[in-house]
Each structure stands twice: as structure tokens, then as C-alpha cells.
Design a protein around this nucleic acid. Structure first.
Lengths: 210, 210
DNA sequence: GTCTATATTTCGATAGAC
DNA sequence: GTCTATCGAAATATAGAC
């Protein structure tokens, strides 16, 4: 038996270390960008020697790709909030709430995604052309059905989706600017609630769904 | 006379080279980020030897700071579109048009700004705390006057400004994603017009100004 | 003012002891 | 599996001829 299956203990250590590295990488990539991030800094934040990173993730690119995939999958799960209702106010309202909650809980993931797309999506272009394109086509059709049923104004579905993405992700990607304009303090629980309601209210009125 | 004033010829060459370098730097910083950009690549794009960059801009940081300042000043000029009217539909509509036009003409500058803010504004934090904070306070007061006069719904002014920034800048910062969803082609003149009208329509309806 | 050549530093990645 | 030490490549920045 030349190959020994890894024991549970080892698998636990691996899972724990990978999680530590991914969490540190998300933070460092968000704060410094891909080019500005260093494996040494990620290792320091994770509390591991630099060589261990190369043991779990062969290259910097591989580690980065995993980080980008993670936030993308979180967003895709939130998309289900739009389904299961024939009321656009409810469906889009729930989607806004889910996206705002993600902006609050995962600002770093959102920033890494934004940075990746701004730089031409060199690593995840295939996701844009397959998963995202398919998802978008499905929601465009859904919005057209809502419009046809007279439950909302005849807006351009793509432009509505862009507005939803832009407005919700702005609270993650530009949270530093928002904090500065908020007197240097992060938004409080109440302020997050107000922001979510303000976004919902303005957009739902804007598309005639309220 | 130990100091000779620079001759006009020399000043012209300096202005020309600085402009060449700044234009190349904006493009490279936008595509690669600060950390990913190299002075060598900026020099190649500008068509100058690398050492010349260090002659005109002592450090990479100094060159970067000039690029960020440029887009910030362009945006501040567009802000005047909101002034000189007591009709929010006209003032905010004109501001949206101006911001959309900037997103179209200066996508790289917008990306460099977004990247800078996402990374915690290490270089232009002072601008956020002075110029931007003052500008924002002035527009918040203006929106409050519009609300008081009954010309628009009582929305939270800060959240409206965030929505304006997010929605318009999304067309610059995420233009690669938008292009991919547009079949891999840049938005046409007509599509830019449609996008601008869609943004104006949804936001102005959303705040009860239409 | 401009450019070639190079000094100096730093990074990604790996070898090899444990 | 883990960690120290280090290699080779690439970056910023500068020295010095022209």
C-alpha cells in the first residue's frame, strides 16, 4: 500500500489552515490589491510561515482565485431571494436586503471582486461569460414577466440590475469613504438599517413597484 | 545670475512629457492597480525611457497622487451641474448626465479613484476629510431645501448621493463586466444614451422628482 | 534634459533539515 | 506536515556619460 489515506486529524488541520489562509488572503488582497499583496504579509496575518502558504496553495494566483470564487458563490446564493414570488417589490426588496447584508458582512470579498473586474477580470473571465451571463439572462426574463403583468414600470432590466449591484456593493467597496463622511465612524446597526430601507425605497419607487 | 529661468521651449517639452506620462500612468494604474503597475510599463506606454519618469516625478507615489487628483477635480467641476436651479429634477438630472459622460470619457481615472478608496485612501485621505466632506455638506443642505420646498420626496440626502455616485461610476468601474454582458462589445452611442436616460428616470422617480 | 547601465531591495518560490 | 535559509527574477531608484 504505497498510498496512505489522510487521517481525520490531518484533514482537520488542513481545513483549519486553509480557512486561516483564505481569510487572511481576502483581507490582504482587499487592502493592497493583487499586485500589492505579498505572500509574506498574508502569512503574517494568518500566523503561519510563508512556506506553508506555498504548501497549501502552489501559487499566489491559485490562492487569489479561491478568494474571488468565494464571494461570487455567496452572491449567487443571495440571488435566490428574487425567486418564488410574483411581486417585484417583494422579490427585489428581498434581493436588496440580502445584497446589503453581504456588503456588511463581506466587504473585503466585494472589494476583491471589484478589483478583479476593474482590472479586466484576468482570472475569472470564464465566470463572467458563463455563470454570470446565464444568471443575468434568467433575471432579465423574470423582470420582463413582472413588467408584462403590470406590476412594475417598463424599465430596462439590465440597467436595473446594474443599479442594484452598484448601489448595494457601493456600501462595501466604498465603505472607507462612507465612514469618513460619517465622521470617521463605521455605520451603526441603525444606520445600516436606514441605508437598506433608503435603497429599497428609492429603487422600488423608481421602478414603479411601490 | 546663478539661476536661468526656463525657456518657453523647455516648458513646452516639460508640459508635453508630463501629459504623456500622466496619461500613460492613468491607464496602467487603472489596469494593474498601484502595486501591479511598474514604472517600466508606464514608460513603455508613454514612449519614454524609464529614467525620464523619475526625472519628472521623483517617486511612483508622487506620479500616482497626481493621477488621483486629476479625476477628483474633474468630478468636482461636474458638481456645478447641480447648482443654479430650484428644480431637483433638472439639477440632479444634469448631474447624472455629467457623471455618466465622465464615466464614458474617463473610465480609467474613475477606476484609479475607486481602487484608492477601496484600499483605504492612503494617499488622498486628506481630500476626503476636507474637500469632499465640505462639498457633500453643501449638497446635503441643497437637497434639504428641495425637500422643504416640496419638490421631491423626503429622502435621506446622503443615501441619495451615494446612489448617484455608485450608479454612475459603475458604468466606468465595471465597464468590463458590462461589456461582457453586452456580448463582448462596448456600449454604443445609443446604448450610452439609453443607460443615461434609464438612470435618470429610475432615480428621479425614486425620489419623487418626476 | 536625456538615456544607458547598474546598484539595491524585495518578492515569489523552493530546497532540504526536522 | 512544518519551518529555516536561500535562490533567481523583477522591481524601484540612481549614478554618470552625453
Amino acid at each position: 500500500m504505497p498510498e496512505t489515506p489522510p487521517r481525520p486529524r490531518r484533514n482537520l488541520a488542513r481545513a483549519r489552515n486553509e480557512a486561516l489562509i483564505l481569510q487572511a488572503a481576502e483581507k490582504v488582497f482587499a487592502e493592497a490589491g493583487f499586485g500589492g499583496a505579498t505572500m509574506q504579509l498574508i502569512a503574517d496575518v494568518a500566523g503561519l510561515p510563508k512556506a506553508n502558504l506555498h504548501y497549501y496553495f502552489a501559487t499566489k494566483e491559485e490562492l487569489y482565485r479561491r478568494v474571488v470564487q468565494t464571494i461570487f458563490e455567496i452572491w449567487l446564493q443571495a440571488a435566490s431571494a428574487m425567486d418564488g414570488t410574483d411581486d417585484p417589490a417583494q422579490g427585489i426588496g428581498a434581493y436588496i436586503e440580502a445584497k446589503m447584508e453581504i456588503s456588511r458582512r463581506h466587504p473585503n470579498g466585494s472589494k476583491v471582486w471589484a478589483s478583479e473586474v476593474m482590472h479586466g477580470a484576468p482570472v475569472i473571465q470564464d465566470y463572467l461569460e458563463t455563470t454570470l451571463r446565464d444568471w443575468t439572462a434568467g433575471r432579465v426574463a423574470l423582470i420582463h414577466r413582472w413588467i408584462a403583468s403590470g406590476r412594475m414600470a417598463p424599465v430596462d432590466p439590465e440597467k436595473l440590475l446594474y443599479m442594484l449591484w452598484a448601489t448595494t456593493q457601493h456600501y462595501a467597496d466604498f465603505n472607507h469613504q462612507i465612514e469618513t463622511l460619517n465622521g470617521g465612524k463605521p455605520l451603526s446597526d441603525a444606520q445600516w438599517q436606514e441605508a437598506t430601507e433608503a435603497v429599497k425605497s428609492m429603487i422600488l419607487r423608481g421602478i414603479g413597484a411601490l
